[in-house]
Amino acid sequence: MTIPSSLGTAPRFDGLLAAFVNCTLKRSPEVSNTQGLIDRSVGLMRDAGVAVDEIRAVDHDIATGVYPDMTEHGWPSDEWPQLYGRIIAADILVLAGPIWLGDNSSVMKKVIERLYGCSSILNDRGQYAFYGRVGGCLLTGNEDGVKHCAMNILYSLQHLGYVIPPQADAGWIGEAGPGPSYLDEGSGGPENDFTNRNTTFMTYNLMHAAAMLKEAGGFPAYGNQRSEWDAGCRPDFANPDYR
């Protein structure tokens, strides 16, 4: 990508790790149109020095439920604990998926439910575990619903503790109704300037926000520590023990 001279040298983001979770309904090696859009963002990140971990959720045995490990609740197997380890290691999380009936895919819903199931886990500062990380989303389809799906995903991520930077979503939809998908020949998806612009802005805003949080040592830990609250140390309350 050409950087205008007025902007100076393109920034580097070495040392950051991003996790992309593809919530397509198609198992590998079937072609995923969502993966086509993911590849655009991943390419920008890797060019800027970010290490990238990619997960196609449907390829894994993810149990249904809202606990960190569903084998402790009657399920015979559950790969989520291993996937959670990869996700929590990342500074950036991008949830990506298709639009069906104007809404997020069932796989996307399951991933968000399992993320929510880990929301009681705390970091070493007593904050919820997802604090200090940034989140965004990518969506594809040939029907309306990009903004509706993005609202659901981004709300869910911020509720869990992720920081959502400006313009943290991007997507592509073709002509309303049956028609070509993003990677289909002649769809115009990969060449769409609106989608390419938003994907680029989203990618760089995620990297900028993650770099700022990392440099700051995470999200400030005052007034948001669950461990302190549970211990009775509550800011702005009549409690001299809070410090």
Rank of each mutant, 00 (worst) to 15 (best):
N33K: 11
P81E: 08
L115A: 12
T34Y: 01
M45C: 05
A89D: 13
C233F: 07
G186N: 10
D53H: 00
N104Q: 07
A170T: 04
N22R: 05
G161P: 04
F237V: 03
I62F: 01
P81R: 08
C137L: 07
F13T: 01
G36T: 01
G43N: 09
A216P: 01
P190W: 14
T200H: 09
H60V: 05
Q225H: 03
K26I: 04
G217A: 14
T203D: 08
F13L: 10
Y242D: 11
G102R: 07
G161H: 10
D193K: 08
I62S: 03
A216H: 06
R46L: 03
D59T: 06
H208L: 14
L183V: 04
G15L: 15
V163N: 11
Q35R: 14
G188C: 12
N142C: 07
N104W: 00
V146T: 06
R133Q: 13
E30F: 14
E113D: 15
P190D: 15
T203S: 14
A238M: 04
R243H: 05
K26A: 14
Y131L: 02
W229I: 02
V66I: 06
Q167H: 13
C118T: 02
A96P: 01
P220Y: 09
S106W: 13
T71W: 11
L93Y: 09
E191Q: 12
A57K: 15
S41Q: 10
I112D: 05
L44E: 08
I99G: 01
Y67S: 09
A231S: 12
A231V: 01
G85D: 12
F20T: 02
I164V: 00
V107G: 11
M202Y: 02
N198T: 00
L83Q: 13
C149Y: 00
T71K: 14
R56W: 13
G171Q: 09
T34C: 04
A221W: 08
L44I: 05
Q167N: 14
R197Y: 04
Q82T: 07
G136D: 02
W229S: 09
G232P: 06
R133S: 08
P11C: 07
G186P: 01
D53L: 00
M151K: 09
D241L: 11
V52Y: 12
V52P: 04
P220E: 14
R27E: 15
L206D: 05
Q127C: 04
P235F: 12
K147E: 13
D144M: 06
M212E: 15
T2M: 10
P165A: 12
S32A: 12
H73P: 03
G74D: 10
Y204A: 11
E191L: 02
Q225V: 00
G74V: 02
A51V: 01
C233G: 08
E228Y: 04
C23D: 06
S32K: 14
R46S: 06
D169A: 14
S120M: 13
Y222T: 03
I121S: 10
D39Q: 13
Q225C: 02
M45P: 01
D230F: 04
A57H: 14
G171A: 09
T203C: 09
W75F: 00
I112G: 02
F201T: 09
S32N: 14
G174C: 12
N142K: 13
G132M: 10
G15V: 03
P190V: 05
D14E: 15
Q225P: 00
A176D: 14
A19N: 15
P68C: 13
C137W: 03
V66C: 11
S119L: 03
R243T: 00
E175C: 01
G97F: 00
G43R: 11
V111T: 02
N192A: 06
L25C: 11
K110H: 07
